[in-house]
């Protein structure tokens, strides 16, 4: 595997994992624009545990996920009191607070960043990505997933059906934060260097776009969205100067042509029935 291909695959893996973190929250109807903040938490947790305590890689990754999840859980209660655009702003603010803390902390390396003493290969990233994708599909295939989608569609009716809306939303937000933390840990270990400036608003916006353009209705959405966003700019490298322009045009076109995302349930249903020509009852 060439260095370039291996690098692209690792970024793809990290982005796919990151996309599932935002997707799990979005599937319950909550938009998290603070992805970079949770990713930064995981990255710094991983770096410090590697550097200061010399913990093995798998442990540092587990702690990245736990810390991302724990902090998400704590802030889920105030954040989930907000709705719609206010929730977007609240989560955005959280990411800014995280960045602010890192920039002002000498222990965390401040603006100069931090070198990570451990290193992982692309294969590790890809294996973790596959596990996270399966986890995403698994959650959405259970009654928990059904309840999450019900809360997304109509909170009041889901409540009357006996769904504990708050528990579902807090759990989704927590799982999302923990997956984002995991993606941050992988980023730190793969690139060997982290700095607060990397975990910026752009990253948060992009990961939310992966999910929204991929589609929030099925677990295929984040996989396709993240792949699309990671691979298309790479493919457009031939056009060099024009690549971001062309990419922008593609994004706008996607939003116009498929406002509910690339993968919708109806589209998936049509594909399945064509593939297997099943007209059977339910």
């Amino acid at each position: 595997m060439s260095g370039y291909l291996s690098g692209v695959l690792a970024i793809l893996g990290i982005n796919v994992i990151f996309a599932y973190s935002i997707y799990i929250t979005a599937a319950t109807g909550q938009l998290n624009l603070g992805g970079a903040g949770f990713q930064a938490i995981g990255a710094y947790a991983c770096a410090i545990l590697s550097n200061e305590l010399g913990l093995p890689i798998y442990l540092t990754l587990i702690f990245s996920a736990i810390l991302g999840g724990a902090i998400s859980f704590l802030i889920a209660f105030p954040v989930l009191r907000t709705k719609g655009v206010y929730m977007v702003l609240a989560t955005f603010a959280i990411a800014e607070i995280v960045a602010g803390i890192i920039l002002n902390s000498d222990f965390l390396g401040g603006p100069t960043g931090m070198i990570v003493n451990n290193y992982i290969e692309t294969e590790v990233v890809l294996v973790v990505a596959i596990i996270v994708v399966f986890l995403g599909f698994y959650i959405m295939s259970t009654r928990i997933g059904l309840a999450m989608r019900a809360v997304h569609d109509d909170e009041a009716v889901a409540d009357l059906m006996g769904v504990n809306k708050r528990a579902i939303q807090v759990s989704a937000f927590t799982i999302g934060g923990s997956i984002a933390g995991l993606s941050g840990g992988l980023y730190a270990l793969y690139f060997g260097f982290i700095e607060a400036q990397y975990f910026n608003a752009n990253i948060s916006i992009f990961v939310l776009l992966y999910v929204l353009i991929g589609g929030t209705q099925t677990a295929w959405g984040p996989l396709l969205g993240a792949s699309f966003f990671t691979l298309i700019p790479e493919a457009l490298r031939i056009g060099d100067d024009w690549r971001f322009f062309i990419f922008g045009v593609i994004i706008v076109a996607m939003m116009i042509l498929r406002p509910e995302g690339i993968v919708t349930r109806d589209a998936l249903d049509r594909v399945w029935s064509k593939l297997f020509s099943r007209k059977s009852n339910v």
Partner: peptide
């Protein structure tokens, strides 16, 4: 629920009768 299938909508109606463990079964 507009984004759930007919069957999923109907199954949502069973939510109150489902055990905690069964919530995690695909």
């Amino acid at each position: 629920m507009p984004h759930l299938s007919v069957l999923e909508n109907v199954m949502l109606g069973q939510h109150s009768r489902i055990d905690f463990v069964d919530m995690f079964k695909p």
